[in-house]
Amino acid sequence: MFKIFKYSFFDLIRSTWSLVYLLFFLVITSAILYMSGDLTKAIISMMNVILMLIPLVSTVFGAIYLYNSREFAELLLAQPIKRKSFFLGQYLGLSISLTVSFLIGVGLPFIFWGVIGSKYLSNFLVLMGVGLLLGFIFSLLSYWVALRFENRIKGFGFALFIWLFMSVIYDGIFLLILIWFESYPTENLAIILTLFNPIDLGRVLIMLFLDTSALMGYTGAVFYKFFGALNGILISSMTLFLWIIIPVFFLVRYANKKDF
């Protein structure tokens, strides 16, 4: 598994796409830092960028990569290699190469601006952690979709739909539910619904660590009480990890019985 990982990791990290991805983050982070000149504001702006782009790029990139390396996969699967270690190795290569681009692209400008040693370090770390986990989750989802659908168009369509669903449609349904149950106390329901969507969960985690929670009034206080306490942090990081573990389980099970 490690060999496969190494191989696909170096294959990906040398590709133009990773470089473009890295440069994109470098440019946009430096631009935001330069324009706002203020670490908190830059973190908020980067939050919007990260919550939208990382899932999107991971999704598209993951699907492209898997479809392109199909021949390679068929070749290797003819060798005496466990399917599990091949697919997991390739998945790790994919997600870690994306993550490395992200970490360097966003991290370097922030470090250059002196985020280490400032009091915003914890906010910054939460931001990076959320970006990292979102990268892992969405490349995993697209990887699974690409494996599932032989037809590239269908696969891409479905992967993009997952992204659209998670970042927009889910929130729409969320809002409708809150409107339907307007006359009931919906704070706990809102917390549960947030836990089920990694993008929302990431957003709420970042916002609670910033000062924005004060804008949410009573609701913010309820959320803060939940997410700010040890239990809340444990539960939310556990759900984020579940978003990796459960799809990995399904991925491995599916990869084991798939005909090539």
């Binding site: 908020i44 729409g172 917390i191």
Partner: peptide, 11 residues
Amino acid sequence: PSSSILMRSLL
């Protein structure tokens, strides 16, 4: 008020 949890989301 609880819809404030959606603040800053794309939707």
